[in-house]
């Protein structure tokens, strides 16, 4: 559940440009995830306003369902690249966990290439979906909000994910080339003990040593 982001290597061996680019990308991903987080907080406050407005003042938020739905695109997608960076998208590790060295890195790389292929095609498809609502028109049922802004969120968020995936392909490729290199900016597989350790780190946050970049 973490990114190995080590500064311990000597300069000559370190892929400096790659690390720098990873840093920039991480900032963008963090910002996107923060936007998602704030959209959740806003949704929560809007719903509280809806209940209070309805119960106390007979003034529900007009078009509450429409507004919520359109805002959902933000928290459903904005953090998708962040989640990929920190290895948050679930998977089964029963086979991968038994591999190591070059075999493991080849498997990881092929897996990420497959994801990148899928995401690239979906960017294309979801762009068409946005484009139809932009050129022909589309709106919500009740208060007729345009749907194109929320449809645009998808190709944008997936594009950011694609950039992250390409970074990870490179990250695994340099490990395939030389498995003794130190992994940089790729999520590493962990056994159940390590997994438990990270769950504990996350549970106690500040109290234990900081576990990698969040």
């Amino acid at each position: 559940m973490m990114t190995i982001d080590s500064d311990a290597r000597s300069g000559s061996e370190r892929p400096v440009t790659y690390i720098r680019f990873d840093g920039w990308l991480s900032h963008v991903e963090n910002a996107f995830n923060l936007i998602a987080a704030f959209s959740i907080l806003t949704l929560m406050l809007l719903a509280v306003a809806q209940v209070i407005g309805r119960l106390l003042f007979n003034m529900p938020v007009p078009g509450f369902i429409d507004i919520t739905e359109q805002a959902m695109a933000i928290f459903a997608f904005a953090g998708v690249a962040y989640c990929q960076r920190v290895g948050g998208h679930i998977r089964m590790e029963i086979v991968l966990g038994r591999l190591s060295g070059r075999t493991l890195y080849v498997c990881e790389m092929v897996g990420v290439i497959l994801i990148a292929f899928t995401v690239a095609l979906l960017i294309w498809g979801s762009w068409y979906h946005f484009d139809r609502s932009w050129t022909i028109g589309d709106s919500t049922m009740d208060i007729r909000l345009p749907t194109w802004p929320s449809k645009l969120v998808i190709p944008v968020a997936l594009s950011l994910l694609l950039v992250r995936l390409i970074m990870q392909i490179y990250g695994y490729a340099r490990l395939v080339a030389d498995p003794s290199r130190e992994p940089v900016a790729v999520p590493m597989i962990e056994g159940v003990e390590e997994h438990a350790k990270h769950e504990i780190d996350e549970a106690f946050g500040d109290e234990t040593a900081e576990g990698g970049t969040r």
Binding site: N58, V61, M141, D142
Partner: peptide, 22 residues
Amino acid sequence: RVRALGGIGQLMEAVGAVPTSV
């Protein structure tokens, strides 16, 4: 407070009803 969408919702608003999202 009534559940009425679109045109019927507008109409009900015109007689003072409060269209509510459900």
